[in-house]
C-alpha cells in the first residue's frame, strides 16, 4: 500500500488579510463525533477525564493540552485535535476529513461575520468559549469564539471554497468602506 498524502480542503491557499482581518485555513488534526447513548453520560464522563475534559454544556467548548471538545447538538460533541481514546457510553465516528476549519481574526472579524451569521456576535452577547451551530448565509456551520477578536468556523468540506468566498467578500467590502472614510 503506497503512502497517501492527506490534503486539507483548502490546501495551499494563502491567508487573506484585508483591513486588519485575516482569513485562513486551520489544520486541526483529527475530529471525532461523540454521540452519547441514552444513559451513557456517566461512563463517558469517566473516559473524558483521562483527557482532562468534561462533556460541554450547550453552546460551549473547552480546551486542554491541545484537545478541544465542542458542543454540536443535543447529547453530541466533537473532540478535535486529539485522537479519541476508547470511550464508553457513546458512539464515536471519525469526521476528520468531513470538515474544513477556517479562522477569522482581527478587530473587524465580528463585523465581517455578522454580515453572514444572523446572530449578535458582539463580545457581550457571544463571549470567548462560546460555540454555536448557526447558518453562515445558507451553509450550516459551527462557529467558535476562541479569543476576543478571533473566531474559528467549521463548515462541511464540500462548502469550504464557498465559505472562503463568502467571508472574503464580506472582508473586502468592509475594507473598501473603511478606505473611503476620510
Amino acid at each position: 500500500m503506497p503512502e497517501l498524502i492527506a490534503k486539507s480542503a483548502l490546501q495551499g491557499r494563502a491567508p487573506l488579510t484585508l483591513g486588519g482581518v485575516t482569513l485562513a485555513e486551520v489544520p486541526v488534526g483529527p475530529i471525532t463525533s461523540i454521540a452519547v447513548f441514552p444513559g451513557g453520560a456517566k461512563a463517558l464522563a469517566k473516559g473524558l477525564k483521562g483527557l482532562g475534559l468534561t462533556f460541554p454544556a450547550p453552546n460551549r467548548f473547552a480546551e486542554k493540552k491541545g484537545a478541544r471538545i465542542v458542543w454540536t447538538g443535543r447529547d453530541q460533541a466533537f473532540l478535535i485535535g486529539a485522537p479519541a481514546p476508547a470511550l464508553q457510553g457513546a458512539a464515536l465516528t471519525d469526521q476528520s476529513d468531513g470538515w474544513a476549519v477556517l479562522s477569522v481574526a482581527g478587530l473587524g472579524a465580528v463585523d465581517a461575520l455578522m454580515r453572514l451569521v444572523p446572530m449578535d456576535l458582539r463580545l457581550l452577547a457571544f463571549p470567548v468559549g462560546q460555540s454555536v451551530r448557526a447558518p453562515l448565509n445558507h451553509m450550516n456551520a459551527v462557529l467558535l469564539r476562541t479569543e476576543e477578536y478571533a473566531f474559528e468556523l467549521m463548515v462541511f468540506r464540500s462548502m469550504a471554497r464557498t465559505a472562503w468566498h463568502e467571508i472574503g467578500v464580506a472582508i473586502e467590502a468592509l475594507a473598501a468602506r473603511a478606505a473611503l472614510k476620510p
Binding site: 450547550p58 453552546n59 443535543r74 444572523p118 446572530m119 454555536v132 451551530r133 448557526a134 447558518p135
Partner: peptide, 11 residues
C-alpha cells in the same frame, strides 16, 4: 431551548 434566541430563518 438549547441554542437560545435565534433568527426565524433558522427554523
Amino acid at each position: 431551548p438549547l441554542c437560545g434566541e435565534r433568527d426565524r430563518r433558522e427554523f
